[in-house]
Design a protein around this nucleic acid. Sequence first.
RNA 1: GUGGUUGUAGCUCAGUUGGUUAGAGCACUGGAUUGUGGUUCCAGGGGUCGUGGGUUCAAAUCCCAUCAUCCACCCCA
Length: 455
Amino acid sequence: MSKPSIPKGTRDFGPAEMIRRNYIFSTIRKAFETFGFMPIETPAMENLSTLTGKYGEEGDQLIFKILNNGDFLAKADAQAMQEGDSKKLAFSISKKALRYDLTVPFARFVVMNQTELTFPFRRYQIQPVWRGDRPGKGRYQEFYQCDADIVGTEGLTCEVELVQLFDEVLTNLQIPGFEIRINNRKILLALAQVAGIEDRLVDLTVAMDKLDKIGENGVVDELQKRGIPEGAIEKIRPLFSLNGDFQTKHNVLSAIFEGNEAGQKGLEELRYVFDAIRQMELRSGKLEFDVTLARGLNYYTGAIFEVVVPGVQIGSICGGGRYDDLTGIFGLPNVSGVGISFGADRIYDVLHELNLFPNASATVSQLLFVNFGEAEERYCLNLATRLRRQGVACELYPTSAKMKKQMTYANNLGFPYVALVGSREMETGIITIKKMETGEQYAVDKSEILEFLTA
RNA sequence: GUGGUUGUAGCUCAGUUGGUUAGAGCACUGGAUUGUGGUUCCAGGGGUCGUGGGUUCAAAUCCCAUCAUCCACCCCA
């Protein structure tokens, strides 16, 4: 017998962790619904053909493919096998795959259900996704995404609302000093055009995205390595050290983009969002225009979002953006959408690192009845039943074990209260409730337990 | 995928130039305390030293392989 284990990059969640995870999920879910998003779910597995080609070449390799059932070898591509072409072979022995994100399945869902949906359609989706990535800090092979998207409209109020949604969730989770970074793909495109390297847009964005990590000189090196001409680099270099508020950055870029349509359009869109947010005000977040923000996904066409918590080395905790034609690949062109995603697992890590979970309790129960014996057991079971019908989570220790053992149980699991009901209490109907945090004990009439606990 | 780090009790880790029966803290169990936890004291249980091979009279210790882990790069949530 070998020791049991789970695949790398996956995790079990014990009760204490699940209580905390559910706190995150319910906070996110509640905010989603407050903003009018409707829940949907899609299957864990999709047809492999639905997923391939949507995430770039590297993304394709990170998709977990599911081996066909039955005699898959009989239908295997013998030629591919002979040539040692794993990629080609994969398609002949695998028809299904685990979903890689929630956006592509959602696009598929919209196309399949287009006649039944009323647009603009707002949906949210909280489900796990799988990536065959090398696991590391804040990086797993199975993790949850919490997505909210609005499809079927180009209205910029959506961008504004999504910024507010970031603010709402992260404020409620009490994450301090988070920064909502925003940029616009049109601005990146304009930069490439102005520098005369429109065909190298991807190289440009990938390099610029690293500014935080490798600094101005690092980005220049990276651009040189990628073969961007010196003249082009010199044109965009001033932007790497662009500072100040939105207006300042706007003015600089506006001058650079004079006569460039995409650039002006991008700035205009950003201005709309910044104006609205300034008027509405965010609860605790900070909205930052970051020209270097690029994100890897190549289907974004307008706004791009990312949320980071300064001082926590964990990468971005949320992302998102506008994509003008995601459903086009599934045969439904001209449907614009914009969406954001919360990385629940990373948010968990951030809250954990900053010690921001509201309580350390490992139980959902409010109250533990200590078990003193048969007669007391029956009496307490009665009280517990009444309390539960009133909505109080409570439990009775199942055996009349030693007092110390029962108290240790209550202590380890973090019960806020313990009820001590022995012969004395049964006679008078006045039970003893101990508040575990302080050790104080109270005499409470058995009909007033609810009032005592909620006081 | 590339480079490096570390694998010893449930957890965090000691373990000397290779040398008798591999240790500590925390956790667990019992007792001091027969209606009182989180503090204290005492006692106890628990290890194929990641796995496989090699060197040696002798390996946790040295060598090789393999698996796992963590960190950096790459990419991302």
